[in-house]
């Protein structure tokens, strides 16, 4: 009897949840192109950018939120708050930033902010309703960070869409990424140039709308 009541309460809660704002998170390792994809989504549907992008890792060091993004395609629609998160890494060395020409003080500050950003990204996992994991299509997808992120989303029953970004680059290898996560459909895109972005919106609407 108690379990029936619990099921009923959960269904009631999920009905109620649909009315509140859906949080759609962009997760992944640093430099995978999360902010580039966030900018693409915001440009396509709001006509404005979301954040700055850079070739230097850990450009996004704070959680960025763009509220009330509404996408509509082929009769399906989805409204959400887009949450762009700092890249998750297991190591951060300020000396890596010195190598790209930063001064020591600036490099140390960036490293400090980056570590805080990773912690915030992990904390925010519990708040997400849907997550897009943005992987760099040119890199080894079978890294422990990727596996840990996806495993944590799975453990929390959060719907996940895997995106292999940078398919415009010759080094990208969709087959390898799909092979690393055979239980998921992987959408290959170039967030920078908008390549295959329609397929991405279709997959997102199928998953979350």
């Amino acid at each position: 009897m108690i379990s029936i009541i619990k099921v009923f309460l959960n269904r009631f809660k999920s009905l109620f949840k649909k009315k509140k704002d859906v949080k759609l998170g962009l997760y992944g390792p640093p430099n995978g192109g999360k902010t580039t994809l966030a900018n693409r989504i915001c440009q396509d549907w709001l006509g404005e950018d979301m954040g700055s992008v850079s070739n230097v890792a850990h450009e996004t060091r704070e959680i960025q939120i763009k509220e009330q993004v509404h996408i509509e395609k082929d009769g399906k629609s989805l409204s959400f708050n887009l949450v762009d998160t700092p890249g998750i890494a297991t190591k951060i060395d300020y000396e890596d930033f010195l190598k790209v020409g930063m001064k020591e003080k600036e490099a140390k500050q960036r490293a400090k902010e980056a570590t805080k950003g990773v912690i915030d990204s992990i904390k925010w996992l519990d708040d997400m309703d849907v997550v897009i994991v943005v992987l760099d299509g040119t890199k080894d997808a079978y890294s422990q960070v990727n596996i840990t992120i996806i495993g944590n989303l799975q453990a929390r029953n959060i719907p996940v869409l895997l995106v292999a970004n940078k398919i415009d680059l010759r080094k990208s290898n969709m087959k390898k990424i799909q092979a690393a996560f055979p239980q998921y459909e992987v959408i290959g895109i170039s967030a920078k140039y908008g390549k295959n972005i329609d397929a991405f919106y279709d997959a997102l609407l199928n998953l979350a709308a």
Binding site: I92, I119, V145, N152
Partner: peptide, 15 residues
């Protein structure tokens, strides 16, 4: 899995 995420978060605190 949750402990793996905790390991990463605590590692960041200790850097």
């Amino acid at each position: 899995k949750e402990e793996e995420a905790d390991l990463i978060a605590i590692t960041m605190e200790e850097i």
